[in-house]
Design a binder for these strands. Structure first.
Lengths: 75, 75
DNA sequence: ACTAAATGTAAAGTTTATTTTACATATTTT
DNA sequence: AAAATATGTAAAATAAACTTTACATTTAGT
C-alpha cells in the first residue's frame, strides 16, 4: 500500500542552459552553501521545499521543471 | 540582494474538496505522522520536497496547486 | 447532554538537511 | 605547463524536519 518514490532533478542541465551558471553562483542566488547545491544536484538528498522553490526561482522556471517525482510502484 | 520568501499552502482547502479527507487519512496516504500534517498545514514549517510531492500525490494534483511560493521583495 | 471523532498544543527524541572547513581532482585560461 | 576556476569528497557541527506520546479542545452524531 505504501508507495515507492524517486525524485530526480535537472539542475545540471538548467545550469548550462542558464549561461553556464556555476554551482557557486546558484548557491548564492538560492542562499545556500555550495555544498548543498552539490549534494542536491547529485541527488544525495532531497532539499527542503523552500530550497526547491528558491532553486527554481534562480532559474526562472517552475519547480516541476527542476524536480521530477516518479512513483515507482506499490510496495 | 537576498530575497524574502513565503510559502503558503492549500492543504485544508484540498482536504475538504477531497471528500473531507481527515488529517489522519492524509497522514497515512503521505506516509507521515498526523503531527507532521498538522504542522505543515498550519505553516509551522515547510516540508521536505519529498513530503510536498507525496501530499500533492495524495490529492492527485501538482505540487504547485498545494504550495504557493511568493517572493516578498528584496531585503 | 453524551459520546466519539477530529483537531490542536507541547515537549523530548531521532533523523535528515544544511553549514563550515579543508583538501583533492578536474577543467579552462593564459 | 602554470595558474586560476570549477567541481568533488569527507567529516564534524548545527539547524530543521519528523516522530512519538500524551493530553486538551473543538466539532459532529445520537
Amino acid at each position: 500500500m505504501a508507495k515507492n518514490f524517486e525524485i530526480s532533478n535537472n539542475i545540471r542541465r538548467l545550469r548550462f542552459f542558464a549561461n553556464a551558471m556555476t554551482q557557486q553562483e546558484l548557491a548564492e542566488k538560492a542562499g545556500v552553501s555550495r555544498q548543498t547545491i552539490i549534494a542536491v544536484e547529485a541527488g544525495k538528498y532531497s532539499p527542503s521545499l523552500e530550497l526547491a522553490f528558491r532553486i527554481a526561482d534562480a532559474f526562472g522556471v517552475k519547480i516541476g521543471e527542476v524536480f521530477d517525482y516518479q512513483v515507482k510502484g506499490d510496495s
